[in-house]
Design a protein around this nucleic acid. Sequence first.
DNA 1: TTAATATAACTAATGTTATTAGTTTTTGTC
DNA 2: GACAAAAACTAATAACATTAGTTATATTAA
Lengths: 189, 189
Amino acid sequence: MARAGLDQQAVLAAAAEIADTKGVEELTLSTLAQKLGIRPPSLYNHVHGLPGLRRQLVLYAYAKLKETLTQAAVGKAKDEAVRSLAEAYRAYVHRHPGVYEASERYADLTDPEVQRAAGEVVDLLIQVLEPYGLEHEEAIHVIRGFRSMAHGFATIERSGGFGIPLDLDVSYRKLLDAYLAGLRALYAK
Amino acid sequence: MARAGLDQQAVLAAAAEIADTKGVEELTLSTLAQKLGIRPPSLYNHVHGLPGLRRQLVLYAYAKLKETLTQAAVGKAKDEAVRSLAEAYRAYVHRHPGVYEASERYADLTDPEVQRAAGEVVDLLIQVLEPYGLEHEEAIHVIRGFRSMAHGFATIERSGGFGIPLDLDVSYRKLLDAYLAGLRALYAK
DNA sequence: TTAATATAACTAATGTTATTAGTTTTTGTC
DNA sequence: GACAAAAACTAATAACATTAGTTATATTAA
């Protein structure tokens, strides 16, 4: 029999790698077991079936995203911080396309753990917006806008939805430029 | 035996309804056949298996989106047209969540038919931006920004990703306000 | 009107996946 | 060294997609 010596971390890491390299549809208990050198039923020792695996992957995705964004924001403020966050968000989706997609596809936002993990990302964004001195509600609106742009651009890009051969970096920068300029214009001063 | 008298249209309509009401994961050949009162293998008379069904659904999704956006744009120009498009885009995702999701999930953008269908939506947006008199490349950047915002906001909203109880209509309007104001500011004049 | 053909349904069978139940073996602990 | 817990296993079942082969119903042609 020869035990494989796996734990949740190892299983999750293998799952993330399959998702990122082969795509999220390829992440099955079969492919995962094969990668780990065990039989599919053995996975139930580490994970609550496929739903449990997906849930773990969602939590991992949010944690990693928060970590990535946090690193991007240190030592920066205002527009510079926002631009850095936007770049980091997009880069994260590039680097972890499958994991990010899993967080879109499988997140059950009625699950308190998942809510907390997702909420921590939003909390970070709130922090970064502090220096602007916005009303709380206003900050929420701005964050929703930011997330929409970053998520929307990155996912359309990931799916190959921007078909015309024109520099995507430029498009993204212009989108952000416009939004930031618009905020300046609207919130006057 | 008693023939059911189905054709591609009827099959596709039933598939769209399942996707929109039960969710895209519930759209299987089993559930579809059940809804149509036939056995799963009989579907192969109308559709090239599950991949073929999904492809049809993707084409349907783009066609319907284009139609919806076209209606929203008639008789309007510039900012008013853009706002109307944005509203229509979001409303479309609300009304056809499963069909829209299918177009995200299953679109194979190397398929020429799919490219054409998706391209027609972009062409419409290009038309609407004409009155601004932008350079062609500039128009493409703006369209990418528009799509990112509309797609991003609508899909995060659909997934329940905006958890805080704060009016989403307001957030969406403010996002658009900021973007449009930003474009005005950047493209000067 | 009838004969021939094409079409749309069917049943049966196969392979894949997820999952559960029950078993064995290893590992770690007293 | 014995025992308990954990991690692997095999076997079996159910759901789904798909293929092959069959039958009945439309449709078309003579």
